[in-house]
């Protein structure tokens, strides 16, 4: 599997402010990689280093095997980028804006641009300053997608888009993946990442705290298990099982959180008169929130952004 993005011990400080700390990442060709974290966690800082818009304090970032600081032009030639916070030229129309960014890449396939305009339902004849937030976002997406880049780096891409356009956007991502393109998608909208991404990294206070497939991240998290018995059963034996926490007793029902293998719980429950067994897999959102409800991983440093 070819690594498209590689970050090794990537660290960035803004004077006394923390940006990111020892970020290690590897994004492979043909995957949609989610980068999750709340505001100020370091998502945008990581992305801006990958694009050589800012330089790391230490560590290395490579895209397409090229060091980001060595030959950013070569990297930019092959990627499409939509920043999280941006604005463009008020006096240009949507189409002029798209054309300008196409020209900076030496031109693009105009038929594909027309197709994107149509699919995202954009009126390209209006001036940029007259667009709503969602329409501006569509212009940005088309600028990022129009040259069919090998790698798409998208920072909060669906901000301001209505659900119908979001669906079209997801289709575009899946089509890109099917064609072997890679997507690095930063977001704090967990459902979006869960729906679209193959793998996900969770960044917290500048550090990567989880990195796995979406399924993997979920499976590592606690399952919510509910056991209903014919008669009341003592909670203590269940609480003694490794990986079982938060056991509560309510009449003939026991509820608990199970992290890791569930078989010991099933075996013990089988020794009683078990009426019903419900195990619910946690959503990515629950995993994410659980990650952020725990104590801080490192001494707190003020974040820069």
């Amino acid at each position: 599997m070819t690594a498209i993005i590689q970050a090794e011990k990537l660290t960035k400080s803004y004077g006394p402010f923390r940006g990111i700390v020892d970020v290690d990442l590897e994004v492979n060709q043909g995957e949609i990689f989610g980068f999750l974290g709340p505001n100020g966690a370091g998502k945008t800082t990581t992305i801006r280093i990958l694009l050589d818009l800012i330089r790391p304090t230490s560590g290395r970032a490579r895209v397409f095997g090229i060091d980001a600081a060595d030959d950013p032009v070569q990297i930019h030639r092959r990627l499409g980028y939509l920043p999280g916070e941006w604005n463009l030229y008020d006096r240009l129309t949507g189409m002029e804006t798209i054309t300008y960014f196409a020209n900076l890449r030496g031109g693009v396939d105009r038929k594909y641009v027309e197709e994107l305009v149509q699919r995202l339902d954009l009126d390209p004849s209006r001036r940029f300053r007259e667009y709503s937030k969602g329409n501006k976002q569509k212009v940005g997406l088309i600028c990022a997608l129009q040259h069919r880049p090998e790698l798409l780096i998208l920072d909060e891409p669906t901000s301001g888009l209505d659900p119908l356009v979001q669906q079209t956007f997801n289709e575009l991502l899946f089509e890109g993946r099917a064609a072997g393109r890679t997507v690095f998608l930063s977001s704090h909208i967990i459902s979006e990442v869960e729906r679209t991404c193959d793998r996900v990294a969770i960044i917290r206070e500048g550090r990567i705290v989880r990195l796995d497939t979406v399924e993997g991240v979920r499976s590592l998290a606690a399952h919510e298990v509910e056991l209903r018995f014919a008669e009341p059963v003592a909670a203590a034996p269940f609480a003694a099982i490794e990986g079982v926490t938060h056991v509560t007793e309510e009449g003939r029902t026991l509820r608990m959180l199970v992290t890791g293998p569930i078989a010991p719980v099933v075996r013990l429950a089988g020794q009683y008169d078990l009426v019903d067994f419900v195990s619910r897999e946690p959503s990515l959102e629950e995993v994410f929130l659980a990650e952020y409800e725990t104590v801080p991983a490192t001494p707190s440093t003020p974040s820069a952004r």
């Binding site: 950013p72 032009v73 930019h76 604005n87 030229y89």
Partner: peptide, 15 residues
């Protein structure tokens, strides 16, 4: 200041 530099600088043109 306008916020357009990130997109411009991500084009394949050296700074």
């Amino acid at each position: 200041g306008r916020g357009s530099m990130d997109m411009l600088a991500s084009a394949p043109v050296s700074r």
